[in-house]
């Protein structure tokens, strides 16, 4: 039962990643990220009960609180303040983006079978999904122009890494996980501050305009 829940949530995370790729409204993309983080938290809770690892509950609470609620709220506030709500036409159009991501999912699943824990059961799906999400995050990062979308891509990659940690290990030691979460929060705040400064100076969040430095 729990096993099925884990697989369902992992699949849900993959779906949110696909929707993010096919999405242009920034606030929808941010909500999708929040949903993705909450699903990650649910995976952690389910694993805490199936494998009797109570410390995963704490990390689940951390994930849902910080990444499911706080970061999306902070990003929403950022785009509200600067008043930019839509991603402009990406470098690769949406249908081809989705097709490429389909290919990336196949690659992610193929690689996951080589790992120690990736052979069978729920772990196979969890690792497969997380590696696919990692590749899709990278893809988003190189094809999108808005600063906030790039932050979301980075955060998706980070969620993918946490999902690998859940699937392939028994979860990182709690102290380490706390430290990592703290760093992620600070990173998002720093990114937010930088977006403000960029918008102030350039009156745009289009990072493809950041192209003076060459050679």
């Amino acid at each position: 039962m729990s096993q099925n829940l884990v697989i369902l949530c992992a699949a849900g995370m993959l779906v949110t990643a696909y929707l993010m790729v096919g999405q242009k409204a920034l606030f929808v993309a941010i909500r999708l990220y929040g949903l993705q983080s909450i699903l990650l938290g649910v995976v952690a809770v389910a694993m805490a009960f199936t494998d009797h690892r109570p410390h995963l509950l704490e990390s689940a609470a951390l994930t849902i609180g910080l990444k499911g609620v706080f970061i999306p709220w902070f990003l929403m506030r950022t785009i509200d303040r600067i008043g930019i709500h839509r991603e402009i036409e990406p470098f690769v159009n949406t249908p081809s983006s989705l097709l490429i991501c389909l290919g990336l999912t196949v690659v992610g699943y193929r690689v996951s079978t080589g790992l120690a824990a990736g052979g069978e059961g729920a772990a196979h799906h969890v690792i497969g999904v997380s590696l696919s999400m990692l590749l899709m995050g990278l893809f988003l990062m190189v094809t999108r122009r808005k600063a906030v979308t790039q932050i979301l891509a980075l955060l998706t990659i980070e969620n993918a890494v946490f999902l690998v940690a859940l699937g392939a290990t028994s979860g990182m030691p709690l102290v380490v996980e706390l430290g990592i979460s703290f760093d992620v929060i600070v990173a998002v705040l720093v990114l937010g501050i930088l977006v403000h400064r960029i918008v102030d100076r350039f009156e745009s969040m289009d990072v493809s305009r950041l192209s003076k430095l060459k050679g």
Binding site: M141, Q150, I157, A187, L191, L194, I198, S211, K212, L213
Partner: peptide, 22 residues
């Protein structure tokens, strides 16, 4: 302008690198 460009590239590339390291 150029400092912000450099800082943005540095942060995005650095964070990406660190996600890989993680």
């Amino acid at each position: 302008d150029t400092s912000l460009e450099a800082a943005w590239k540095f942060l995005v590339l650095g964070s990406l690198g660190l996600a890989f390291a993680l």
